[in-house]
């Protein structure tokens, strides 16, 4: 039913996944001694930057962002500023949640904040791209039966997958295996990334499989 959208979604996701891959591989080529564990913060930054840039570009090109009523430069500027603000607030929010979950308050603050940035660029950024800086729309999408388009469903799936991945990623930390990936926040960021990639694959597949059952009420 939504074949066009599904195809667009799949290609978008393929591009984003490729960007993640490139963001992992390129620094390894350019920088000698780069590894995901060893220079973990660098990896987080490069992946976050890549995902941010590619998502913004792709969604802007696709034009899924909700139609704006005004086209003045001032309005667009304010929207941009608000998006940045939301991005930053979301980083702070994730940081707070991570600290509440037991991340050390002072000792690993930079690592925790980097993880928050990564999670933000994987989840909040997509919301910003698809829904715009509109809190009401966010609440609508993330409440039950709130999706109003294929993109909303896709958003739900990827965000849930990312968060669950990061959540599951915390489990190996207490094990006494002494592996490099058990260091905070490596396992969580890897878990989040794996969850995100899973979501990228799962969302189009799930929508494609359920495309007969999907009905959206339009407002």
């Amino acid at each position: 039913m939504w074949d066009h959208e599904i195809r667009a979604m799949a290609s978008t996701h393929a591009i984003i996944a490729a960007s993640v891959f490139m963001a992992t591989v390129l620094p390894a080529v350019v920088m000698p001694g780069f590894s995901v564990y060893g220079a973990h913060l660098l990896w987080i930054y490069s992946v976050s930057a890549a995902v941010t840039a590619v998502s913004v570009a792709v969604f802007w090109l696709l034009g899924i962002t909700p139609p704006t009523k005004k086209h003045t430069v001032g309005y667009k500027l304010s929207k941009l500023v608000r998006s940045c603000l939301y991005f930053f607030l979301s980083c702070l929010f994730f940081h707070t949640v991570l600290v509440l979950y037991g991340a050390p308050l002072i000792e690993f603050a930079l690592e925790t904040f980097s993880l928050a940035v990564l999670l933000t660029s994987l989840t909040t950024l997509r919301c910003l791209c698809v829904l715009g800086p509109n809190v009401q729309a966010w609440i609508r999408v993330f409440s039950r039966h709130g999706a109003m388009s294929v993109w909303d469903t896709c958003l739900q799936i990827t965000v849930a997958c990312t968060l669950v991945g990061a959540w599951l990623g915390a489990f190996p930390i207490p094990l006494d295996w002494d592996r490099p990936w058990q260091v905070w926040p490596v396992s969580c960021s890897l878990g989040g990334m794996i969850g995100f990639l899973t979501g990228l694959v799962a969302a189009p597949a799930w929508i494609h499989y359920h495309r007969k059952q999907l009905t959206y009420k339009c407002k």
Binding site: L100, L175, D176
Partner: peptide, 18 residues
């Protein structure tokens, strides 16, 4: 897992937070 028994408090804190 012995580590999870040793660190069972982490499991409970984590679950409680969630």
């Amino acid at each position: 897992a012995s580590s999870f028994v040793e660190e069972e408090h982490q499991t409970w804190y984590f679950l409680l937070n969630t």
